[in-house]
Every structure is written in structure tokens, then in C-alpha cells.
Amino acid sequence: MFVQIKDLTFRYKNSQKPLFENLSLSFKQGEVSVILGESGSGKSTLLRLIAGLEVPSKGSILIDQAVMNDTFRFVQPEKRGVGLVFQDYALFPHMTVEKNIKFGLTKMNRKQKQARMEELLTIVGMEDYASRYPYELSGGQQQRVALARAMAPNPSLIMFDEPFSNLDSKLQLQIRDELQEILKRTGITSIFVTHDEEDARAIGDRIILMNNGKIQDEGRPEMVLQKSKEKLSLAYV
């Protein structure tokens, strides 16, 4: 297993009840997993915990067999080698596309940085936009730059927090297909978070259905979605 989460417990500081209690979950290498759930179900928080942006109160997280946190250790987000594409992209507004993508390339010399940046722009099809600022780009273009930026340092795992929610529906389909293509080509392990069943079905190798901080079901997309539909219709009956 590439990512292993064991007995994870987490509570937000201003809430009484823990969001996760003894949550265990794992992700396979090279797999595209989708965490599907309503807003407030805890799916984004799970991403933040894996990325190291939140500190769990109990449990452990391993990535590629390295302990990210357990009872004694806590690896800072910058040392985890995990890429995260934020819901509203979080492109640095004071930097050009080029600077944004080069931002995470700390261990390379100038030539290598330039080459890597150009490579990624080609992958996302934005070769002509290197000198633009984020506010000069459309939503779809920003999305692609955010993906390029997250992939640039060659993370072993890349995660997406509601990546399509800010795009109009036509663009959504196009970007989704492109993204799927890129992920398949690079073979990178990835985790998506979404509330949209269609997105989950289209992009995921596996779906994890989450509700109120608990995993309700997981498995191949058709199976999970079929079961949840049956449950729903049963509830109607």
C-alpha cells in the first residue's frame, strides 16, 4: 500500500465531537482514488491531514513506507513530498505562471528549472502563457497551471480538493478528460475529493464514499455508486 492511514482521530479545535475517530484507509500506488461525499463530510480535512496541514490527535499516516506522523513524530508539510491542488488553486498572485511553477523546484539549477517548467507547460498545454500573471488567466487555465505547479517537484502523491468546482460545466468535462489523461500518462498516485458523482465515476479507479467522517463504502466506481443508488431507492420505498 502506498498511503496507509491507521486509527486516525482528529477534532477541530472549536468542535466538541471528533470529525474522525479511528479512521483507517489505504491507497494503492499508481491508483486514482476518489473520495466522494457531501460538504462537511470531512473529505477535504482528510487531504489536509495527509498533506500535514492539520495535526491529528491520534493515529498514524505512512506514505511510501515512511512515517509521516504517529505518536512521536510529525513530518512538516514541506518535507512530505505531497502535491496538493487547492480548490481555488491558490496561485501566487504576485508571481507569473513561470515563477509559480518554478516555486517548488528548490533543488535544481537554473537550467534544470527552466527545462522542467517548459516540460510541465507542454504537458498541460500552456506553453504560451509562461509570462502571464494568474489574474490574466481564465479559470480553466488557472486550473492547469495549478496542476503543473503541484506536479513540478515530482511528488510521489498528488491530491486534488474539489478541482472542478470553480469551472463551468462545459469546461469541467474537458478539463476532467485532460486531467485523467495526464494522470494515466504519468502514472502518479492521486487522490481526488469531490461531491460530484459524475466526476467520481469518470475519473476514479476506486471510490471511497464518505459521510460524517466515516467511510461508508469503497470499491470500483460502478459497484459503489450502484449500491448507494439502491440504498437511496430503498429509502424512498
Binding site: Q76, E78, R80, G83
Partner: peptide, 21 residues
Amino acid sequence: TVFTEASRTLGMSVTKTFFKV
């Protein structure tokens, strides 16, 4: 804090993030 978080997942420490972002 989203820009700070983005910077940290891209491998920058708190201090580097502070000066660069």
C-alpha cells in the same frame, strides 16, 4: 492561509514561505 499552505506543500518552510509569499 491558503497561499501559505500551497507554498508549504511545494516544499518551502514556514520561514522561506514568509519571505517569498
